[in-house]
């Protein structure tokens, strides 16, 4: 469903992505991990065209992300994205956050959008927080609003960029549970995370990145029991002992 082929990205003289290729099939859950600065965020932002890249191709359902003929906003509306720092609109309530793109992108009526938003917010356990501003919510609640905002667009796939890294430990699980449920429902997901427990429970495959390269692309069982590269072994030792 999502195909990356030899993607290169530079910021000035810095070569950030050095020929990344991978394929994510419908319904698959792929966890991306690797040391900080290895290009994980850059890679998943390339997938919905938030970061332009110089070489290679990315297609989503056969539609090229980098082609000038592609209607990029339309493509993005079909891919949900969740950021590390929530990125909610602080001047709007939870409900308004979730309704905005439904109204302005999907052209749903205000009423229709609000009904759907309320339903989805209830599903992620926030049915009683519809009228709250982000500043009135805990980190875990904010991140669930942000997941709801993405889900409200009926996306075909979801991208997560370290969705729990900014959370206090006691709030990590409430977010992971929502994600796990999504995965069980068959959502196609690419998840950048260091939560190896989540990867072990939910992932089909693990991509391990280091210095702009996808060093490993293996089924999760193999990744955790017998990683092929020394770098992945080192990395696993570090995150698992923490």
């Amino acid at each position: 469903m999502i195909v990356l082929d030899d993607v290169h990205k530079s910021y000035g003289p810095q070569h950030i992505l050095r020929g990344c290729s991978a394929e994510i099939r419908l319904g698959e859950v792929v966890v991306v991990c690797g040391p900080s600065g290895s290009g994980k965020s850059t890679l998943i932002k390339c997938i919905n065209g938030l970061v332009p890249f110089e070489r290679g191709t990315i297609t989503v359902d056969g539609v090229s992300v980098s082609s000038p003929k592609t209607d990029l906003p339309a493509l993005r509306s079909r891919i949900g994205m969740v950021f590390q720092s929530f990125e909610l609109y602080p001047h709007m309530t939870a409900l308004q956050n979730v309704s905005l793109a439904q109204i302005h992108v999907l052209r749903r009526s205000q009423k229709e959008a609000d009904e759907r938003s309320a339903k989805i917010l209830t599903r992620v356990g926030l049915g009683d927080k519809l009228g709250q501003r982000p500043s009135q919510l805990s980190g875990g609640q904010q991140q669930r609003v942000s997941i709801a905002r993405a889900l409200a667009m009926n996306p075909q796939a979801m991208l997560f960029d370290e969705p729990t890294s900014a959370l206090d430990p006691e709030m990590i699980n409430e977010v992971l549970e929502v994600m796990q449920e999504l995965a069980l429902e068959g959502m196609t997901m690419i998840v950048v995370t260091h939560e190896m427990g989540f990867a072990q429970r939910v992932a089909d495959r693990v991509l391990f990145m280091d210095r702009g390269e996808i060093v490993e692309d293996t089924p999760k069982e193999q990744f955790f029991t017998a990683p092929a590269s020394e770098r992945a072994r080192q990395f696993l030792k570090q995150v698992l002992t923490h």
Partner: peptide, 19 residues
Amino acid sequence: LLPAALATGLRPLQAFRLI
């Protein structure tokens, strides 16, 4: 907040005007 707004499918002008 523009990247987050764009990621939902809003067009650049909409993201600017609304957010």
